[in-house]
Design a binder for these strands. Structure first.
Length: 553
RNA sequence: GCUAAUGUGGCUCAGCCGGUAGAGCAGUUGAUUCGUAAUCAACAGGUCGUGGGUUCGAGUCCCACCAUUAGCUCCA
């Protein structure tokens, strides 16, 4: 057996840039032994796998530095992520603060200067646990206990530092030529808010100093197109202390907003939608029927009117269902596509608020489609095409996720299975790639989510298509079939923009405030150079204004 | 909600070890009409997030609350 390094060397594929290898598509380190004749590919920082290994080793350097400075801190996990790495520590009652990062960075530099090897070794379960007991790492013991029977339990030694880790890693830490600890923050153990909050340190690292500079530069540039900043500067919208999470839209922001709505209405008219408007406040009884009172209560604002409980709607669907029920429907009328630009209010946690991206009141470009079961696939395909058309119009890239039944949900297993398969079937027929999010669906049905990227590559959920076989049941809605009998329709909830507010935020960042002409609040600005031009400029402005051009003088 | 940081005129920020606020831009007025982001001058604008406390005295120190920012959780 040869190591990956030896194979690559024989093939003349080794250079200083090579960080790791891929063997039959599996990520492995250069020192790993590979089967004879195996196909070995070199990985550099340009490859996803190379980055991952690079950042993973960086996280070990971070952890080693923290252990040197704060020996009582307990190790948990420290993976590579999309743009860097982090390591979570249990620091007891101590909280990491930004000024500690400088000290940790300095210690990391020392470690990297020593260029320690990343040495892999494996241990049987009992010895592995013993080692971690000796080193006082209770979280690692927990992790060891979870390693399935028969699987190797591997460790990496880096100087005096030893960590339970599946790897792979760089040959040695000296390859890390530039790094920066970005921030420290709290993060829950296992990502569960019921668990203890750990101390997380985020960092990035690169094989060249210039790459770090470029990265930091990009972050600075991204800050400049933050929609909160541009929104204030361009006088589009803002949020005040008096209304946390409740945004104000100013005249120029309203121009964009109204144009988006005009565009939306036109598109939906063409796609066979009709439009309604349902009340913002509705009786508690309605929310009890829909299940929201039981499943969504903490997020709802409530009020009392004439001694009766009411709630401000967090979703439009119950109103939409009442509207459907106002009369008898024939199978000939289906599908009914009923849109509503509905203003909803949700009590989001204060720490979750984020400009227009995450607010406590927003307008969903909602629509409910009522149909016969055999129409499901075509309708979903139709909605997908609508969403794709809108996103392409603005030049957005998006990713798709399918979310399945959550724990706290209503409805029968059969209904959920049928609905989930309906969504899956449509996605597969469209030949789309998507990620499955187990247990992430709405409480009344599974959903397909569309995620758009913002300027610093955070993704935001915008469009969603949710198939619902539960609310039609709870509201006992029907249609009259060809057999003259009552049947239960199936319902789709869907949004394209998602929320007008969030969509405007993403547009603002996407275009850095330079909106396409048709959306620009000011399309033409008339600037007189000298007073002699004033009169002409006035008449020119009047002419443009009369032609429906949005001008400013 | 949790962890950390921040909160000074419309905006961006300065204000050292506590002695009672400063700049640039924006605004107003006047002058300038000069070729590609802000010419000159004057004026106006702040109970320093809120409420307590320490002190002879607090923007500066302490406490509580509110809001914001980053991340976690959650989500359109």
């Amino acid at each position: 057996m040869k190591t990956a390094y030896e194979v690559l060397k024989e093939n003349g594929q080794i250079s200083r840039e090579v960080l790791a290898a891929s063997v039959y598509g599996e990520l492995c380190e250069l020192s790993a032994e590979v089967p004879d004749g195996a196909e070995v590919k070199p990985l550099t920082f340009e490859d996803e796998g190379g980055k991952k290994v690079f950042w993973h080793t960086s996280s070990h350097v971070l952890a080693a530095a923290v252990k040197r400075l704060y020996p009582d801190v307990k190790l948990t996990i420290g993976p590579a992520i999309g743009n860097g790495f982090y390591y979570d520590f249990d620091a007891g009652d101590m909280s990491f603060t930004p000024d500690m990062l400088d000290k940790i960075e300095a210690e990391m530099k020392k470690i990297i200067r020593d260029n320690p090897r990343e040495e892999r070794f494996t241990l049987p379960r009992d010895e592995a646990i013993k080692l971690m007991e000796e080193r006082g790492e209770p979280y690692k013991i927990l992790l060891i206990e979870r390693v399935p029977e028969g699987e190797e339990i591997s460790f990496y030694r880096q100087g005096e530092f030893i960590d339970l880790c599946a790897g792979p890693h760089l040959y040695s830490a000296g390859a890390i030529k530039a790094f920066k600890l970005i921030q420290c923050t709290g993060a829950y153990w296992e990502g569960d808010s019921k668990n203890k909050m750990l101390q997380r340190v985020y960092g990035v690292s690169f094989p060249e100093k210039a790459m770090l500079d470029e990265y930091l530069n990009r972050l600075e540039e991204a800050k400049k197109r933050d929609h909160r900043k541009i929104g204030r500067e361009m006088d589009l919208f803002d949020i005040y202390e008096e209304g946390p999470g409740f945004p104000f839209f100013f005249p120029k922001g309203m121009i964009i907003r109204n144009l988006l709505e005009d565009y939306w209405r036109q598109l939906h008219r063409e796609a066979g939608y009709e439009e309604i408007k349902t009340p913002i406040i509705l009786s508690r009884k309605l929310w009890e029927t829909s299940g929201h009172w039981d499943h969504y209560r903490e997020n709802m604002y409530t009020t009392v009117i004439d001694d009766f409980d009411f709630a401000i709607k967090p979703m439009n669907c119950p109103g939409g269902l009442l509207a459907y029920k106002r009369k008898l429907h024939s199978y000939r009328d289906l599908p009914i596509r009923c849109g509503e630009l509905g203003l909803v209010h949700r009590h989001e946690l204060s720490g979750a608020l984020h400009g227009l991206m995450r607010v406590r009141c927003f307008t969903q470009d909602d629509a409910h489609i009522f149909m016969m079961p055999e129409q499901i696939k075509d309708e979903i395909i139709g909605v997908y095409k609508l969403i794709d058309k809108v996103y392409s119009t603005f030049g957005f890239k998006y990713s798709i996720e399918l979310s399945t039944r959550p724990e706290n949900s209503i409805g029968t297993d059969e209904a959920w299975e049928q609905a989930t398969n309906g969504l899956k079937g449509a996605l597969d027929e469209l030949g789309l790639t998507y990620k499955i999010n187990e247990g992430d669906g709405a409480f009344y049905g599974p959903k397909i989510d569309f995620h758009l990227e913002d300027c610093i590559r955070r993704t935001w959920q915008c469009g969603t298509i949710q198939l619902d076989m539960n609310l039609p049941e709870l509201f006992d809605i029907t249609y009259v079939g060809a057999d003259n009998q009552r049947h239960r329709p199936v319902m789709i909830h869907r949004v394209v923009f998602g929320s007008i507010e969030r969509f405007i935020a993403i547009l603002t960042e996407h275009f850095a405030g330079a909106f396409p002409l048709w959306l620009a609040p000011v399309q033409v600005k008339v600037l007189p150079i000298v007073d002699a031009c004033n009169e002409y400029c006035d008449s020119l402005a009047a002419e443009l204004d009369a032609a429906g051009i949005r001008i400013e003088k």
